[in-house]
Every structure is written in C-alpha cells, then in structure tokens.
Design a protein around this nucleic acid. Sequence first.
RNA 1: GCACCGGUGCCUGAGUGGUCCAAAGGAACGGCCUGCAAAGCCGUACAGUCGCGGGUUCGAAUCCCGCCCGGUGCUCCA
Length: 461
Amino acid sequence: MLRIHDTLTDELVELKPRIPGEISLYACGPTVYDHPHLGHARQAMTYDVARRYLEWAGWNVHHVANITDIDDNIINRATSEGVTEPEIAQHWEAIYLEVMDDLNILAPHDRPRATEYVDEMVEFIQVLVDRDAAYATDSGVYLRVRSVEGYGDLVHRTVDELAEGAGTRVEIDHDKDDPLDFALWKAAKPGEPTWDSPWGPGRPGWHIECVAMSLGILGDGFDLHGGGNDLVFPHHTNERAEAIAAGRTFSRYWMHNAMLNINGEKMSKSLRNYTTVRELLDEDPRNARALRLLLLQTHYRKILEINSEVIETARAGLDRMDAMFRKAEAAGIDHAAAELDAEAVAEFTKAMNHDFGTPEAMAIVFEQVRAANGAIDAGDPQASTAVRTAIELAGALGLEIGGDNGSGDAEGDAEIDALVDQRTEAKAAKDWATADRIRDELTERGIVVEDTPSGPIWRRA
RNA sequence: GCACCGGUGCCUGAGUGGUCCAAAGGAACGGCCUGCAAAGCCGUACAGUCGCGGGUUCGAAUCCCGCCCGGUGCUCCA
C-alpha cells in the first residue's frame, strides 16, 4: 500500500490510483529564463525519484513535466538583452535539459511547452467565461475567485483570510471586481508577444498553462500533482481554482517538496544566494551523484541545509559505496546474477511506501554495503547477494553504485596500470622504498591505490 | 500582523505513543588487517534522554498547553 502526504488534506493517505496499477503524475517544470539552481534540482529529483521508485515497484507511471516558455520573466529578460522571447526560452530550455540529463533525471514521458497549448488555454478560458466564472475587462480576463468553492483549501485558508492579505492591492488592480481575482488572459502591451483570442490579442495569465496541459494530457481526475512548496499559493491554488470553476476534476492528490537552505535561509533567486547546478557539476562531475545521495538522505518534505561541506560528506558516502563495488569486482564476485536479499527488499519497499521514505531506504542500502564488505573480506559466498541488493536498491532510486571514477580505459590509464604493476613487483621483492616512491608518485597524480587479496586496484581521488 | 513549519550527538539528518536506554552517512578515537598505508571489518565516546516548563498516559523524542529560538508563506518590496 502506497501512502503519501497529501497537501490538500494535510494527511498521510493511501494513494488510490484512478486506474489500478497506473499512476499519472504532473510535476511543475521550470520557467526558462535563467540557470537552474540547486533548488530546481531538488524539485526535479524529488519527482524523478518518486517516478523511478513507482516504476521499480511495478506501477505504470505517466510522468508529465511542463516547460513554461512565456511569462513576465522571459519578456523582461528578452527586453533587457535585446533579443526575442523565443530565443530566450529556447536558450535556457536547452541548458535546463542538459543539466537535468547530467543529473541523471529521467526525461518525463511528456514535456509540453506553454506556447504549444495556447489554443487549449483560450478554449479553457472561454468555458470559464461561459460559466460566468470569469469576466473580461480592457486589461484581460479574470477569474472570480469567490465563485470557487473551497478556493483556499490547498493552503488551508479561507477566502476571507486570503483577502485580508490581498486587501491593499485593490487600488492597483482597479479593473478587477475583487482584489483576489487573478488574470487568466493578459491583454497585449506594446512589444510583447501576443496570440489572438476572443478578448483581443494577448497572452496567457496565471498558471492557466498547467491546467490546460495537465488535463489535456492526463485527463480529468489524474492522480498526483507535485511541485515545490513555494508553489502551493498562489500557483497551485489558482490552477486548482481554474479547474474547479470549469467544472473539471483536477488532480486527486498533491505533494510538495521543501526548499533548500543556505546559511539558514531559503535558497532563492530574489535572495541571490543560490548555486547553479552547472557550477556544482563543473566543480566535480561526481557531484551529480553526491547531490542525489544527499537529497535521498533527507526526506523530501524537510528543509535541507546545503553547502559545500555537506556535498563533500555525501561524496564520502558515495566513495564508500563505490569502494564496495570495486572490491566486489576485484574479487570476481558474480553479483549480476545473484539473488536479492528478500528481507532488505521488503524493508526498503515498506520505507518507500511510507511517503517516499528515502532516508530510511538509504539506511537499508548502506547496511547492505556493510554486509557486502564484510562478506567479501570473509570470502562468504553470500557476498554476491548483498552486493546485488545494494546496487539494485540504490539503482531503484536512480543512484548508480560504481558509476564513475574507477580504473578504466580512459586516456593515460595504461601508464597508471604500468606504474601500479611496477609497485607490485617492488613489493614482491620487498623493496619498500621503491614501492612507496611509486605510490607517492601516483598520489601526486591523484591516484589512490588499494591493495586487496586479489591484487591492487586503483581509482582517482 | 495572520498563518504554517522546524528545534534530535561534533556535522548532515532518520524516527511522530511501547519493538527507541534514538537509524544511516560523515568526522573522531581504539583494535584487527597491512612491510607501512589506503580500503574494509569490529569496537568506543559524543543524545545521562530528543529547545525549555508544565500536563495527558501504565508508557512520550513522538499527544496537549504555555514559553524561547530559527525559518517560510501571505502582507510589503521586487
């Protein structure tokens, strides 16, 4: 039984899919106008892990993640750089996709773009206008928020409580019937990209794209909608309102991942305290896996303090897993065909079925790593099971054990192999001085030599 | 101002009524292994009890009340 924390009810509930055995998941994607930062990586990875686990557990998952390629930020950036909006969007989308790939995040089954769904959005808005849930003014089309039953349910606030906060906006938005109302369609302003509509040329307003795309691709009553918890209000609240006002059934469960902190504060664009994913990967490509491990060791709904120190820590944990893998390979253990440890698999599944309990799941993986190391040292034939189980379970969450930095066929490896052989010969002759000199030389070149019962193996530090 | 979330060992962090005299990873220390290392394994200390004070309960890190501290959302600003 799969249980998740549902934002709407604020309770741990059993996820009962619309179609048995199948889960439809819509995860909000980025607006492409700048470098993705670590917060975007956490968001994407949260749903990547969820999707991978569900698939591993035998569910048939339909994962949709959009690209928002038209909005104020894109227009502003295009204006300031003197280029067109599509140029900005295409440029940053390509970078986003590249970064996601580097992070080993699976491409969603569908990745719709907002600008490809404008017709559907217009049709959707027309329905809202026809139902008198929306009204047109000179500046655009607005949704009557107070006509929507349970508008603030997702944030657990009443409409009046929300209105209290929005009160001071009345004057600014003089066009609106009610300060809470928000734009579904924005009338064209000079120099902005526009599309035709029954209300004149303009462009999509708040979050209508996600409604059109999620319902368009996944259909009414799809299972799960996710995103960062900074989207709960107003973004997801408004999406939900639009769907309800149109008489549609929107997503039936909601999950939201927590933010990343730097020095105790939320990482965000406006605070300018973010690290881009590219910076992290340029520092060391292994950081892609280190970041995944770090995120897995923290529950997705908990704020995580992130800095170079905790990344280093995660990398050390990763080294431990990889060392186990190298040792197993060197010992000639045939783990690929080995059986899984049924008890560990059961515990892992139990942890994951409890609101994606990845920290517990990873604890189980590490226990298998320790068991594997011990068994390999002892020459225990059970070693292959532990090795296989660790690799399998980590792999189910997208973490590849033994993924990189081992000895291989890269440029210069033959030379290192030769040096390692020389050291082995010196050791055989008990010429410790020569052996240590060679090891020092290797160390200087960033190579670590590890002696095992089946001979030396080496890796890049 | 309103609301929400969090405060667990040196660090990152699991656990949300008994199986917890509190997982896992990292760092530290000791032992084994090694020619010496590295890696690994074993063990130890650090949480005298889970921010503080009350309460509920046979039983609380876990529930309730109050307080302190930190953060976030709305507001403001962009």
